[in-house]
């Protein structure tokens, strides 16, 4: 393409064919003969006017979507049998080279919606909720522990084509899995985390967390996750803390360099 630099042209020659093959093999997306290629930071992709397929270069992370997919959009959204959606999701994950043994389960999640009119009398007339779409969400388990940050989400169009796909399933080094197993043993032996004032311990579990799907880092950390619930108040949102084998708080995986801290001391 005329507006591409020599470097971009080289990347396009190197990566575009494989991206197109992957789009077809994994998501069944036909991107024609000459989709637009782009690469920036840690991600590359190809797209047509309505279809996009991209993948991170530092992780097994894939995004695919059809702009016509969704409730009230041209291609619609799947509301059919769960079994068909789950079966299709398994095939997609297999095509993306996700090991069957790492798929803990595939759940079907329903998205519902409704509308209401505010009448001149001030009353509100609410319509019956309707099913907007179903999505399948795969959860990950490796070396016997959950990998909370990993997922595979599939949304199909009304006719069963892939409309939305997001797979975030980074490679886990053996050392990470070995440590996760040790942490599971520590939990089994009766791990006692730090107290959180105003809350009591609700659950303790060993697992793995990693950087989220959209971001510029790929950090992976085996952890013990402790969830607490408030004791003295009805305050919502539960603290969840992540510890290492010694009970120290771990450094959290990054997505982007956080914005700088603001200076405290707002004037009255």
């Amino acid at each position: 393409m005329a507006d591409q630099s020599p470097n971009e042209r080289a990347l396009s020659r190197l990566e575009a064919p494989e991206l197109m093959r992957s789009a077809s093999r994994i998501a069944g997306l036909d991107l024609g003969k000459r989709p637009t290629f782009a690469s920036a930071a840690n991600i590359s992709g190809v797209r047509t006017r309505t279809r996009t397929f991209s993948r991170r270069r530092d992780s097994l992370t894939i995004f695919a979507r059809d702009e016509d997919y969704g409730y009230a959009r041209k291609a619609g959204a799947w509301t059919g049998p769960n079994k068909d959606l789950v079966t299709r999701t398994r095939k997609i994950l297999r095509a993306a080279k996700i090991p069957d043994a790492e798929i803990r389960r595939i759940r079907v999640i329903s998205e519902r919606g409704t509308v209401a009119e505010r009448l001149k009398s001030g009353e509100v007339r609410v319509e019956r909720p309707e099913l907007l779409r179903k999505l399948a969400r795969a959860e990950r388990r490796a070396a016997g522990v959950p990998v909370w940050s990993s997922h595979g989400v599939v949304g199909l169009t009304e006719k069963g084509a892939v409309g939305f796909l997001e797979i975030h399933w980074p490679h886990l080094l053996p050392a990470v899995l070995d440590e996760a197993k040790v942490l599971a043993g520590v939990v089994k032996a009766g791990f006692a985390p730090e107290d959180v004032r105003g809350a009591e311990l609700e659950s303790v579990e060993a697992g793995v967390i990693h950087s989220p799907a959209i971001g510029f880092f790929m950090d992976v950390v085996p952890v013990i996750r402790c969830v607490y619930r408030a004791t003295e108040t009805r305050l919502g949102t539960k603290p969840a803390l992540y510890f290492d084998r010694h009970g120290g708080r771990v450094t959290l995986p990054r997505s982007i360099e956080p914005a700088q801290a603001v200076e405290a001391g707002r004037a009255r």
Binding site: I109, E111, G113, T114, V115, A116, E117, R118, L132
Partner: peptide, 10 residues
């Protein structure tokens, strides 16, 4: 704001 539309995922 004559009408409201909302959706949720559980």
């Amino acid at each position: 704001p004559n009408w409201f539309a909302w959706k949720w995922r559980t």
